Simulated assay, not measured.
Amino acid sequence: MKNFIIFLILAAINVAAYAKPHCQGFNNYDNKVTIVSTDYKAGSQYTVSDVIFVPSWKGKEYKATSVSTTVENGVATVTLEFPHITQFSNPKVILRINGKKRTFKVCQ
C-alpha cells in the first residue's frame, strides 16, 4: 500500500511537471487581445504567473492585464487578456505554470 501511495504522488508530480498549454482561441476585439488556452494535463494544482505576450519576431513584449484560470477534471482553461495590439507575426505567449517556464504559439 505504501508503494502505491508513493506511485500516486510521483504520478501527480509528473503530470504537473509536464503541463503544456495549447491555444484554443484568439481575438483582438473590444480594445484588447484575448487568448484562451487549454491544458489537458493540469492535475489538481495549476498556478499561472509571469504572463507575457510577444506579438511578433521584433521582440516587443506585453504583460497580461488579466489572467483567469479554471481547473475541472484535470483540464485547465486559462483566459489571458492583453492591451490592444494591431500587428501580429507568429505571436507567442511566455508564462509560468506552477513555477515552470512554458511557451506556446498563439493560434490565429
Rank of each mutant, 00 (worst) to 15 (best):
M1P: 01
K2I: 00
K2L: 03
F4P: 00
I5T: 12
I5F: 13
I5C: 05
I6E: 08
F7V: 01
F7L: 10
F7I: 01
L8A: 11
L8F: 13
I9T: 09
I9D: 06
L10Q: 09
A11N: 13
A11Y: 10
A12E: 07
A12K: 00
I13D: 05
I13A: 15
N14D: 05
A16S: 05
A16I: 00
A17K: 15
Y18W: 08
A19E: 13
A19K: 10
K20A: 14
P21D: 09
P21W: 06
H22R: 15
C23D: 03
Q24M: 11
Q24E: 12
F26L: 09
F26M: 11
N27S: 10
N27V: 05
N27F: 04
N28Y: 08
N28P: 06
D30L: 12
D30T: 12
D30P: 00
D30C: 06
D30G: 12
N31P: 00
N31R: 04
K32Q: 15
K32C: 04
T34R: 10
T34Q: 07
I35A: 03
I35R: 07
V36W: 00
S37E: 07
S37P: 08
T38G: 02
T38W: 00
D39M: 08
K41C: 00
A42R: 02
A42E: 06
S44R: 02
Y46N: 11
V48N: 08
V48W: 12
V51W: 03
I52T: 14
P55T: 06
S56A: 09
S56M: 03
S56D: 14
W57A: 08
K58Y: 03
K58A: 05
G59Q: 10
K60V: 05
K60Y: 12
E61N: 06
Y62I: 00
Y62K: 07
Y62H: 07
K63R: 12
K63N: 08
K63T: 04
A64K: 11
A64V: 07
A64D: 13
A64N: 11
T65I: 02
T65H: 04
S66Y: 07
S68T: 08
S68D: 11
S68E: 10
T69D: 00
T70H: 08
V71K: 06
V71M: 06
V71W: 03
E72C: 00
N73V: 03
N73H: 09
G74K: 14
G74Y: 12
G74V: 13
V75W: 04
V75I: 15
A76W: 04
V78Y: 01
V78P: 01
T79K: 15
E81T: 05
E81G: 02
F82I: 01
P83T: 04
P83C: 10
P83H: 05
P83K: 09
H84E: 15
I85C: 03
Q87T: 09
Q87N: 14
Q87S: 15
F88V: 02
F88L: 07
S89N: 03
N90I: 03
N90F: 10
P91W: 05
K92W: 10
V93R: 07
I94Y: 01
I94T: 09
L95M: 15
R96Q: 15
I97F: 14
I97C: 13
N98G: 13
K100W: 11
K101S: 09
K101T: 08
K101I: 03
K101H: 00
R102K: 15
T103S: 14
F104A: 10
F104E: 09
F104R: 08
K105E: 07
K105Y: 01
V106A: 02
Q108G: 02
Q108H: 09
Q108F: 05
